[in-house]
């Protein structure tokens, strides 16, 4: 009886895109911006990224092993969490920060709520906010770009952009304090900031890669960025000045947030309309935090606040089923 055929209900074929494939795509999309951070901030940045990823993957593995839970491919999603967390940290943080952050992200935010697909907040961002609040001092110092060795490449990339030393403050903080910053530097990433957030252009490229591979839909990032630009135009105090708006869009964690963290499957709405509502909500909230808040940043808090509203947004934006309301009449 060894040649029995399999019998199961249809469909009998499957797409080759699996969870692991998707997670690797996200890692690939994040890599250019992460590598740029390493180039910019040096070897220490690489160490932080590795520590953060290792901490996440090990936490996931150990928890699942000790709790005797099966799971294939789960580590890939932990890898994404670890990479995102590392990219959201400053190069100056002590080495125990990414380790602690990774454990918190995976064990507390993800596994304690049921593991993959069950966490109600983006683990990387929740961990970042946890670290910001609990370890405020080591988290507050931002990396300064490595001026000397970066010059050639920087001139190549930024064209004839002026080479100014950038202060330890992030450009957004500088703008908020009434100072100026260079838009091209912000666009290409020659500014201070966390390891992975500085290069808007590489993050954008990664985002486009995900859009082309259909890993993410355009709805959340487009709604998010457009709403945010509109909000800053109305309430930012500079009107619709393109230079100011562009700096706000390129600055801080917005690009990283809009393309990689607001689009996190688990913590964003699954309904098409809900994704637009979610993006609009994040845009307004980020604007409120940046304009009226104490800090120049606001993306992380906006996204984790938005995460909490996802079940409600989904409930209110259930799509209308095909042909609903039609009546049998003939």
């Amino acid at each position: 009886m060894k040649n029995l055929w399999n019998v199961s209900a249809s469909p009998h074929i499957r797409s080759k895109v699996t969870t692991a494939v998707i997670m690797w795509d996200v890692v690939i999309a994040l890599t250019p911006a992460a590598l740029f951070g390493v180039y910019q901030f040096g070897f220490r940045a690489l160490l932080i990224l590795i520590l953060s990823m290792t901490s996440c993957v090990l936490s996931e593995h150990c928890y699942r092993k000790w709790m005797k839970k099966p799971g294939d491919g789960y580590e890939c999603s932990a890898l994404v969490t670890g990479l995102l967390l590392g990219m959201n940290l400053s190069v100056n943080v002590p080495y125990w920060i990414p380790v602690l952050g990774g454990v918190f992200a995976i064990i507390v935010v993800k596994q304690l709520f049921g593991g993959l697909g069950q966490n109600f907040m983006n683990p990387a961002l929740a961990a970042r906010c946890f670290l910001l609040i609990s370890c405020a001092k080591p988290m507050a110092s931002f990396g300064v770009e490595k001026a000397a060795s970066g010059d050639t490449a920087r001139l190549l990339m930024a064209g004839a952009a002026a080479v100014d030393g950038v202060s330890a403050a992030t450009p957004l903080a500088a703008i908020k304090a009434g100072e100026t910053a260079s838009l091209s530097d912000m666009f290409f990433g020659f500014t201070g900031g966390t390891i992975g957030e500085t290069s808007a252009v590489l993050l954008l490229a990664g985002g486009i890669y995900l859009l082309v591979k259909k890993v993410i839909s355009i709805r959340i990032p487009a709604a998010y960025l457009l709403t945010f630009a509109l909000f800053m135009g109305l309430f930012g105090g500079h009107g619709f000045d393109p230079g100011y708006l562009a700096m706000q869009l390129c600055g801080g964690g917005l690009m990283l947030g809009a393309f990689f963290m607001a689009t996190d499957y688990v913590t964003s709405p699954i309904t098409p309309m809900g994704r637009i509502v979610f993006g609009v909500f994040l845009g307004i909230l980020t604007g409120v935090f940046r304009v009226f808040g104490g800090s120049a940043e606001g993306v992380s808090y906006a996204i984790i606040t938005g995460n909490l509203l996802v079940p409600l947004i989904e409930k209110l934006t259930m799509p209308r089923s095909f042909g609903k309301g039609g009546k049998a009449n003939v």
């Binding site: 969870t19 993959l116 499957y265 688990v266 964003s268």
Partner: peptide, 10 residues
């Protein structure tokens, strides 16, 4: 494996 809520089904 677990649903990751990617929305492909939707």
């Amino acid at each position: 494996s677990a649903c990751i809520r990617c929305g492909r089904c939707v």
